[in-house]
Each structure stands twice: as C-alpha cells, then as structure tokens.
Design a protein around this nucleic acid. Sequence first.
DNA 1: CTGAAAGCGCTAACAA
DNA 2: TTGTTAGCGCTTTCAG
Lengths: 334, 334
Amino acid sequence: MTIKDIARLAGVSVSTVSRVLNNHPDVSDTAKEKVMAVVAEHNYIPNTSARELGKSTSDNIGVVVRGMSNPFYTNILTVIGDRIEKAGYTMVLQQIGSSDDEIMAAALMEREKRLLGLIFLGGKLDYTKKQLSSINVPFVCCTFWNQYGTLDKNSYSSVSIDDNQAAYKAVEHLYNQGHKKIAVLLSGPDDGSVSQVRFAGYTRALNDFGLGLDKNLIISVNSFGIKDAYDGVKKWLKKDRDFTAIFAISDNMAMGAMKALREAGKSIPKDVALIAIDGIEASEYMNPVLSTLCQPMDELGSEAVKLVVDIIEGRDEHKHVILPTTLRKGETLK
Amino acid sequence: MTIKDIARLAGVSVSTVSRVLNNHPDVSDTAKEKVMAVVAEHNYIPNTSARELGKSTSDNIGVVVRGMSNPFYTNILTVIGDRIEKAGYTMVLQQIGSSDDEIMAAALMEREKRLLGLIFLGGKLDYTKKQLSSINVPFVCCTFWNQYGTLDKNSYSSVSIDDNQAAYKAVEHLYNQGHKKIAVLLSGPDDGSVSQVRFAGYTRALNDFGLGLDKNLIISVNSFGIKDAYDGVKKWLKKDRDFTAIFAISDNMAMGAMKALREAGKSIPKDVALIAIDGIEASEYMNPVLSTLCQPMDELGSEAVKLVVDIIEGRDEHKHVILPTTLRKGETLK
DNA sequence: CTGAAAGCGCTAACAA
DNA sequence: TTGTTAGCGCTTTCAG
C-alpha cells in the first residue's frame, strides 16, 4: 500500500492524497472524504522514511537521552515534551544505551528529522570541538555541561545545577551536624561523569572545613547502579572503618548503601548519617526516607526548552544556566 | 553532504560509495581507501531515511516497549537485544508512552524498517483482529497475552507468567501463614491490564480458601505508580480496617504501600504481612526487603526472541509459553 | 571491479 | 481546487 494505490483507489492524484494526509487547506470536502474512506478501509499508513526524505523543513526539536532506565530523566522528559509542544514544535525523542555515542545519534537524527535544535539530556562532559563538528544545529545540554571539554562556551547552551556546589553543601550539612569523618560513595572516580564533579565538591568542602581527604573514606564503585553501590559499600564495610557519615553522589547509590549499612548492623542516622544528591521519587519511599539535595527537575526541563527555542527563533544567544537545589530533609540526617 | 558529494570528492561513482559504506565485497582497496578518506574528512553520515527507503530487505526485528520508566522492562530488554543480535538480526527499538497506540507504532515501524517480526514488551490484553490487521509480520507478546481480546491463538505468539496463578500463589502464601483477612492493592480494577488478571487470581484464591471477597479489603488506585499506591493506601487506612495482610499486584505498588503502612504505625510483617508480584531490583533494597513472586526476566526475554526467530525462519508455528515464577522470601512475610 | 540509471514512497513547487 | 512532475538521498539491478 503506497500513496499511489490510495490515489488510484480514491480516483484522485497523489498530491491530493498527500494534501489530505497532511491536513493542507485547499482540498475539497468531496476529495477529502473519498481519500479518508480509502485510507480507513485499507488502514493505510504512510511511510515515514519517505515522508522525511521528501520534506524540506520541519518543526522538530530532537532530544537525546542517555540511559532509559534513569528515573531522574523520565521526569524531566515529561516536562520537556510538554514545553516543546507548547512552543509549537515537535519533539523527536531518541533514547540511547549507556555505551552508545550520543553525538553520532544526534548527528543521524539531525539529518533524518531535519532538526531545528537539540537537547541532550544527560551525557558526557568532555566532548571536543572535533567530535561536535557533525552537529550543525544549536543544542543545549540539560543537567550537565562541557566541564572538562574544550568546547567554546558560546557554541552551546546548558542548564544544570552546580554539581560541585551541591556536593559541597551536602558535606556542609553533615559537617554542621558535627560529622568529621565523612565518607564519600562515588562512581569512577575519574570517569568524566558528574560523579567526578561532585567528588571535587566533596574534597573542596573537606578542605574548607579543615578535614582533609582520607583515602580510606572513599568508596569507589563501577557504576551508578544500586547493586554496585550496595556491593561496594558492603565490601568496604568488611574492614573496620572509622566514619560517622556518608555522602553519596546520587540517590540511587545511596539506596544501595542503605541496605549494606543495615546489613552491617549500622543504624541510620544514629550510627551513620547519609545524604545524597538528586531527589528521585524512589528514595522518598525508603525507610528511612533519604535526605538529599533535590534537583529542580521541572525547571531543568522547561529551561532547556526555553533555551533552544530562543536560539532557534533568533531571540537569544547561547547561555549557561545554573539552577539551585533544595534540601529534602528526609530521615537519614539527624 | 550527500553521497553524491562524497562520490565527486573521491572521484568515484555513487554506487561505489554505497558499496564501501555497506561493506560490499567487490570493491578495490584503492577505491575503498579513497572513499573512506573523504568520508572521514567530512565526517559524513548517510541519511537513514533514504537508506531505509532504498533498501528492499532487512534483518530487522522490531521491539515496541510500553513505558520507558518501567524498571521491569529494562532488564528484559537487555536480554532481548542480546539474543536478537546473537540470532543474526538487528533490533529496532521503539519506546512508546503509556498513552500511545502500540499497534500504530508497530505498523509504522514495520513499513519504515521493513521488519521481519515484532516483539511487544508489555501492552494491552484486548486487541481485536481488526486493530491488528495493520500488522503483517509475525509478532510475539512478551509478559502478556491477548487474554480478553478476540485474537486467534494461532495468529500470534506469547511468553509470560500465569498471572492469575501467580496471584493465587501469593494469596496462598499469606493464607498458609494463617492470614484470613487479606487486602488487595490493585490498579483499575478493570483497566484491561494485568492488574485485572491478577485480581482474578486473588478472588479465585479467596474463594478456594473459603474466605470470601470483602469489598472493604480492595484498595483500588489509579495507576501502577508508587505514589498513587502510597496515596491510595494512606487514604484507605484512614478508616479503621480489619486486615492482617496485603497482596499488592506489583512490586512498585507494594513499595508505596510500605511507606503508607509505616506512617500509619503498622509494622511489617508483624502487624501486616505483604507480598507482591514482579521481583524488580528496587524492591530488594526496601527495608524490610519485599517478599514477592519474581518473574523470570531473562527467560521471558530470551524465549520471546526464540519464538519470533523460529517463526521468521519458518521453523515453528505460533505458540504460547507460560513460565513459572519463583518466590523471593524477603522480609515482609513472616 | 565500476558506473549509469531506475526506483523506494513521499512532498512541494508549478501549472492548469 | 487539482494534477504533473521533479526531486529527497540512497540502494540495487544491469551493463560494461
């Protein structure tokens, strides 16, 4: 079934069919009805590839998300989709696995979907100019920025929290409650991810508070996964450790840590205080409820859309927006 | 940058470029090198739409997943992807929102990607023949089947657990521990989803055990979400309820229930026993660890692939496979 | 081993 | 309001 068949069956030309299918004006009701009838009867579905190919423009904004299982992103994504639509554009979503290359995915999309702009939701912080040369539309990084890359700040936009500062604040909360032996649970530590940035905030805070970095208090695991965190902390606890608090660089990892601590007979927050960063839904259902610095998910999403749209419409230049976190008190802090 | 430009720049014809790009044999090394060089220099990326359009066949197997946030699916998906590749095919993944029409998505995909077969991961149980007439390749439903639909059993395959029986077993565990007042936490209850089937298993069990269905023990909420479950149970607990156990139709909902129970001062499992179905990772990190009937995720995925591939290759007919669940003891059961 | 040319299914001028 | 036709960028015969 192609548009030709439909045209023949409806007794009109292909262009008329195309017009009907795309809700163009200037089509007689009779023609429209005839076409619709044939389309319905054969439940004809136009071929998207051909459609995209033939089209010269679009109102598409691409969104590439790294890791489809991250609950943190799903939330932001909803907002992004909503805002893109409200701005009169169409969202084209591309999910990629954690080992896929998002630049490649974006470049492919850009050509296929004739994108006007791009939003990267989550991603690496170390792209180089060279790598990004295959992307020719304006893009904004959501929840991260090219912290360790060599990208020109004027060549892209970003909206995120200040990860370093958030980590600092987390440690500060612990310190203010009298903790001096604060362990850190991270992934990496130099995997070029946000883990690295938050770790930097941790060390900066220790330094400011005159605590000094203790290697024995660094729990480094292989991923952001809950299981790896659990295994890592469990293993770390095998040795006798001198600590009273843990700063986990993500809620998810903190959740793994909680189980390990519980199994080791440590009571939270009595024996060990715990704080993290992110504020995902699940951590609110932990027992005890996780204390964490929440990222402003809604704002992250809506601001990202605002940024691309403004640039697409020539209303603004590339910008870098930092949003504040808010403390969810929770129960893992005294 | 199109294939034409590359051809011109490399001093060869477009067909040669195409051959190089697709790893066809019968291309001289010199030609190959020249093309590769130009491609690399301009980091040219062929347009997928055009590619798909021009192609006459494919080795694609489509997978459409409903709801990208369901942790339960991500796991199965990994296995599916792995097996498809091992079978020598290519997986084309399509994620759809909970309000999207998966049949439409599948039909689109089938034409665009020239699919050989389809796997639906999660979905409704009530498609009709009419609705499915737009799909012309063999498909298998993974984790569900056309329980309330009018589909011919020979027209598709499925692999799932026996949801009714799993619910029955869950209630049985509770009953065997002496519980007589068993509440059920479900979504719907007649939303045509798996919730409905599991609820049927619950009532069947009550019946068999001579317990009788008590409307006051049915906690019905609006979604499978953790928050809705929490809110629902919390509200339900406002009235004085006479119960000693809860069967939650999903892990996720059970997690919401746990918090509501805790806040109501009910101790688990001392005051209230709790059991669910699914066996997702997160529920293993609850405190106490959730007792649940685990779905065999790996087998569900690999069997689904086996089924489509066997049919695609003409080695087998449509089948319906039921896999067993296993009890994760956990700590919410005595 | 290589190139020319005919599509793939659709959209979008341009005429009528 | 409609139809004709020339592409969109690529793959794939079919000759050479």
